[in-house]
Each structure stands twice: as C-alpha cells, then as structure tokens.
Simulated assay, not measured.
Amino acid sequence: MENVIILCKCTGFLIFVLIAKKDLLEGDILRSKDYMKKVYRNFSEFVSECSSRELEYFIFDSKFTTAFNERIKEIIDEIEMQGKKSVELAIIFNTEGEIALIDSFIIGNYIGNSYIKHMEEYYKEASLNNIVKHVVNGSEKAKRDFSILSYTILYSTLNSIYCDIKCRKETLESYVSLYDLKHCKDDDCSIVVASILIVEDICKYIGIKEGVLSDSIKSVATKRNSQDD
C-alpha cells in the first residue's frame, strides 16, 4: 500500500499527516439532496455545492490532469480570499507528488468559478443571478438553450480536471441507456454522465421541466452520435 500525504489547511495552520493506508479515508457515501432545499445568495454557490456533492457520489476514484495539478495552489488561494479559512481542505498526494485525492469543496469551487465565467461571457451579462432570472421567466427555447450551454460548460470543465475515472457503474449504464449515449467511450462517458447529473440539479433547482432538460441532453447526444457515425 503506497503512502499518501494529507495536507489540511485549517484556520491558517498547515498540518502534514503521513497515512499508511488509503483505505482509512474511504467509505460509503450516502447520497443526500439536502443542498437542493437551501437558499443561496449567489447562484454560483449552488453550482459549486451541487457539483461537489454529485461528483462525490458518482466518482469514487480518479486521476487529475497535469493542468489541474498545476492549478491547485491557485485554487486554494482563491478559496482563502473568499474568507473560508475555517474550512478544512484535504489534498492527498501519491509518492510521485501528483494529486491522488482532493477535497470535494475545492473541485466544486473550481467548477462554480468556471461556470459563472463562461455563462457571463456568453450572455454578456454582469451577473449570473440576472441570467438565471431571465431564463426562469423566459421561453421554453431560452430554457433549452440554457440547459445545453450549462451542459457544455460543465463537460468542458470536468474534462479539464479528470482522467482515468472510476465511477458508479450502475449509474453510468442507466444514463447511457436513458439518453442514448452511444458515442461515449471510456472516461469520456464518465465525464458526460457526471455533467448530466449536475445539469439535472441545476434545472430542477430553478424549475426547468424534466422534458426540456431531457430534450436538451438528447439533442447534444444526437449531434455527437451523428458525428461519430
């Protein structure tokens, strides 16, 4: 069993702990949707939270891309700037100095920042909250476009984070069948399903009907399938 190092950053102190067995850190994660009932001041906070929780549920082991490894220190600095110094952040490194496991809060924060950046660029709006408000009060087409864009942003972001993914097989197979994801292969399929899980939460939270979401995802899948034929 390889050794791992846990870096805990809590209230300004750094604590290094050498763990002999990674198994001690692993356990069954009960899926809870309590975050769907909360009220968030900023919509990006919800995106960060639901991303963190869905990925924690769906992915149980993975490696991280070189680019994401290099971004970790910057991400931690960004979190501290938000005044979250009391949050315990755990990073596990393997013997080669690569990130083997990272606190889900950091992953969620990274995804939330990416989501708000690309959404505001696309809609040319200064506030993600305003974008969501317009979508909620908009037409079915506006909701469909929002769903597709959300999926596209999340897929791109997750693809920049993960590689060599191990996930819940039953969930993966269920979604591949549900959305006819025959274009999926290996890690790409895991990224696609993880993106859908997060988009489902986003759409449900703001009241976009399941039919609109389903049509949006299937339209993306159909386009991908036709490109692969």
Rank of each mutant, 00 (worst) to 15 (best):
E140V: 04
V135A: 02
N225M: 05
K124W: 04
Q82R: 10
I29C: 04
K21E: 13
D187T: 02
D145G: 12
N159G: 11
F60K: 09
V176R: 08
V136I: 13
K223E: 08
R224F: 13
E88I: 14
I29Q: 02
E2K: 13
R31D: 04
G27N: 08
R41W: 10
I79D: 02
I72T: 08
I131E: 02
F105C: 01
L128F: 10
Y35S: 07
V220E: 04
Q82W: 06
L7F: 15
Y205W: 04
I19T: 15
S150D: 01
D188Q: 08
A90R: 13
C50F: 01
E200R: 14
N3P: 08
Y115S: 02
I106S: 08
D145H: 12
E98M: 12
V39L: 03
K38R: 15
N137M: 12
V212H: 00
D229W: 06
M36R: 08
T152E: 15
I107D: 03
T66L: 04
C8Q: 15
T66N: 13
N129M: 05
R144M: 10
K117C: 05
E49H: 00
L178A: 11
S160Q: 09
N3I: 09
G138Y: 04
V132N: 02
S174I: 00
H118M: 12
D164I: 01
H183E: 11
I5F: 14
V17K: 14
I161A: 06
I206Y: 05
K133R: 15
D28E: 08
E26M: 14
S226M: 10
G83F: 06
N225W: 04
N94S: 05
L30V: 12
I106L: 07
S160T: 02
K63C: 03
T152V: 08
L154K: 07
N69Y: 00
E26L: 14
